[in-house]
Amino acid sequence: MKCISVYTRDFALFSDIYEQIIEASPGENEELVIEGVTVSGAGDVPEQYIERMRIKPEVVVMKEKERNVTILQHGDVFEICLPVVEAV
């Protein structure tokens, strides 16, 4: 899964810029600023990462079923985990 880190703890702001983040989809180690919020391509994470994070009490896990996106919130960071679509 591809992971994008969003450095804010403000859920309302995150929600407002979520679609822009998905559209911008920064590459690995690429950093963008969207409406004053730093967004960074964190590379690929294994499926097990989400499972490990899910059991931590300080982590909030959200799921966008339509696009199969998992969002993790912990501390001052949101992590958007997107499925990787492989070309045939």
Rank of each mutant, 00 (worst) to 15 (best):
K2T: 08
K2V: 00
C3L: 02
C3P: 01
C3A: 11
C3Q: 08
I4T: 00
I4C: 01
S5Y: 10
S5N: 08
V6D: 01
V6F: 08
V6T: 08
Y7S: 04
T8Y: 04
R9I: 13
D10Q: 12
F11V: 15
A12C: 01
F14P: 11
S15L: 14
D16F: 14
D16I: 13
D16T: 14
D16N: 15
I17M: 09
Y18C: 12
E19K: 14
I21L: 03
I21M: 11
I22D: 08
I22T: 08
I22F: 05
E23D: 14
A24D: 13
A24M: 05
A24G: 09
S25A: 13
S25V: 00
S25E: 08
S25R: 10
P26T: 09
P26H: 11
G27K: 05
E28N: 04
N29F: 00
N29T: 10
N29C: 07
E30W: 10
E31Y: 00
E31M: 02
E31H: 00
E31K: 03
L32A: 00
L32D: 08
L32E: 00
V33S: 13
V33E: 15
I34E: 06
I34N: 00
E35F: 10
G36A: 04
V37R: 01
S40H: 02
S40F: 09
S40L: 06
A42D: 04
A42T: 01
D44T: 02
D44P: 11
D44V: 10
V45Q: 11
V45F: 04
V45Y: 05
P46W: 04
P46N: 10
P46A: 12
E47W: 08
E47Y: 07
E47N: 12
Y49K: 03
Y49Q: 02
Y49A: 04
I50E: 01
I50C: 01
I50K: 05
E51G: 03
R52N: 13
R52L: 09
R52T: 02
M53Q: 06
M53A: 10
R54T: 10
R54I: 00
K56D: 01
P57H: 07
P57M: 04
V60P: 09
V60N: 08
V60G: 04
M62I: 09
M62E: 10
K63V: 13
K63R: 14
K63D: 04
E64A: 11
E64V: 12
E64W: 00
E64I: 14
E64K: 12
K65D: 11
E66G: 14
E66D: 15
R67W: 12
R67H: 15
N68S: 15
N68P: 13
V69S: 07
V69T: 15
T70C: 09
I71N: 03
I71V: 15
I71Q: 07
L72A: 11
L72G: 00
Q73G: 06
G75S: 02
G75V: 03
D76P: 05
D76Q: 13
D76W: 09
E79F: 08
E79T: 02
I80T: 03
I80S: 09
I80P: 00
L82C: 14
L82E: 13
L82G: 13
P83M: 10
P83L: 13
P83W: 07
P83N: 09
V84T: 12
V85M: 07
E86F: 13
E86Y: 09
E86A: 12
A87S: 07
V88F: 01
V88I: 09
V88L: 06
